[in-house]
Amino acid sequence: MRFTDRVQFYESNDRYDTDNPDGKPIPVGEPVIANVTHLGVNRSMQLFGNLNTERLVVRLIQPFNEDWGILRVNDSETYYALETGVYPLKIDGYIVGETQNE
């Protein structure tokens, strides 16, 4: 498994904040190295029952212990929100789905 992607976590901006009037997501911590893959059509149907959202599997070498709401992969324009997490002994993993955050 190759860890070649950079993931930046952000605070969730569900409500208006006077300290952040433009509403752009606020980064949480530094970008981390991750392995990012697409969930796949069959697995997405098995787990979630639909294909309406692009889903990714994000695996981290080190746990990210700060509170976050959304993330971006490799500085793309697309934000992803947590759908479910997997926390085995060695590598934390998240299944995230595309969100309409901008």
Rank of each mutant, 00 (worst) to 15 (best):
89 L>N: 14
56 L>G: 04
94 Y>F: 15
71 L>N: 01
42 N>D: 10
89 L>F: 09
55 R>G: 07
100 Q>F: 05
1 M>P: 12
29 G>C: 05
79 Y>R: 13
65 N>F: 01
65 N>M: 11
38 H>V: 04
10 Y>P: 05
63 P>G: 00
8 Q>M: 14
17 D>V: 13
32 V>T: 08
102 E>F: 07
70 I>A: 08
101 N>V: 15
23 G>Q: 07
19 D>R: 08
68 W>Q: 02
89 L>D: 13
25 P>E: 03
45 M>N: 08
27 P>C: 13
15 R>W: 08
63 P>N: 04
101 N>K: 06
21 P>F: 07
58 V>Q: 07
3 F>S: 01
63 P>S: 08
4 T>H: 07
78 T>C: 05
92 D>Y: 01
36 V>Q: 03
36 V>E: 04
71 L>D: 03
87 Y>K: 08
54 E>V: 15
98 E>I: 09
91 I>A: 00
40 G>V: 09
101 N>L: 06
76 S>W: 09
90 K>P: 00
5 D>M: 09
83 E>G: 01
80 Y>N: 08
42 N>H: 10
74 N>I: 14
19 D>I: 05
11 E>F: 02
7 V>H: 06
53 T>R: 15
26 I>V: 15
4 T>Q: 10
44 S>Y: 05
98 E>F: 06
73 V>K: 06
83 E>D: 03
70 I>L: 03
62 Q>W: 02
84 T>V: 14
57 V>D: 04
74 N>P: 04
79 Y>E: 10
80 Y>D: 06
28 V>W: 00
47 L>E: 15
101 N>W: 03
83 E>I: 07
92 D>P: 14
3 F>M: 12
61 I>E: 11
51 L>R: 14
57 V>G: 07
31 P>M: 11
69 G>T: 01
42 N>T: 11
56 L>V: 06
18 T>M: 12
68 W>V: 00
41 V>T: 14
